[in-house]
Design a binder for these strands. Structure first.
Lengths: 153, 153
DNA sequence: GCGTTTTCTGGAATGATTCCAGTAAACAGG
DNA sequence: CCTGTTTACTGGAATCATTCCAGAAAACGC
């Protein structure tokens, strides 16, 4: 089992959340792997604690996201992904081919698009920017079947 | 049945797509209702043609989106929505409470965030901006019915 | 410790979307 | 106009991420 960060315990207490093994393990899992899916987290936590129910993980992810300790992002057509980097204005690049996600710091200063011109009377509280494209690996390979042909055309 | 636009027929031909009743009806359905879900479209097309299979509609939506005649957007936690407004750089506001979607023209000129600072070697081809908040109706009402009024610690 | 409250377990359910095999319709060519 | 090939549509079943449910187990306040 991985080292338990005392900070995480305090972080949970601060938000009025109970400190449970599952929650600490979920936080630990996301320390290691950025942008993990719920399924990834389930596997990590099982490696860590031995066993957890899928629902416990979903519960944790929901509670931690609601408390602002995690950020949840859901690229169209892909399962949701979770990350510990919260509270800053950063965005994401998603690979159309393999679904991999990476962080992107905002181009235009702090929160450029947060005040849209015409928001139709909506009370806007968040601007979410997602870039779509191909990750370096997928951009290099012609076929997605992962065939390392060592030719440079 | 609604008026068949000759333009739609030409639009389909231009992209090398077969002209079918279902496809025309889907295009017509989206003329009337912006940001419709697949389910909305099924209902519209059934009102229009009498009957369609759900899969026919999904097929049409996919073919038309792939051909660039429709744009598909998928707000996290909500079913996908389709619109005919394509080819321009416009974004969306989504209501957290009722899921309603509205168009937003880009604040910063044409395509502000399309060239992120550090894209980790990704070949980016699209920047998608989604604003989250409350629509005028939901912002006015305190609690619709049984909604998560969440925080009272 | 003890009781109350919240969380975890396991199983079943949901909702959007896709897969599949067969039938029907669309277009090209004669 | 008729025919063949290609592509789309039908209906039903399947999939996948996520949620709902009821009971058992753990967490925290006293």
């Amino acid at each position: 089992m991985t080292t338990t960060s005392t900070d995480d315990v305090m972080l949970l207490r601060d938000r009025g959340l109970r400190v449970t093994g599952a929650r600490l393990a979920v936080l630990r899992a996301l320390d290691g792997h950025q942008h993990s899916t719920a399924d990834d987290v389930v596997r990590s936590v099982r490696d860590d604690l031995g066993s957890v129910s899928v629902q416990a993980v979903y519960d944790c992810l929901r509670a931690l996201s609601a408390a602002g300790l995690l950020r949840r992002m859901e690229p169209a057509g892909h399962p949701a992904r979770y990350e510990r980097r919260v509270g800053d204005n950063h965005h994401h690049v998603v690979c159309r081919a393999c679904g991999v996600v990476a962080d992107v710091d905002c181009t235009v200063g702090a929160a450029p698009c947060l005040v849209p011109n015409d928001s139709h009377g909506f009370v806007v509280d968040l601007a979410e920017v997602t870039f779509w494209g191909l990750c370096p690996a997928c951009a290099a390979e012609p076929a997605p079947a992962a065939e390392p042909s060592s030719n440079t055309p």
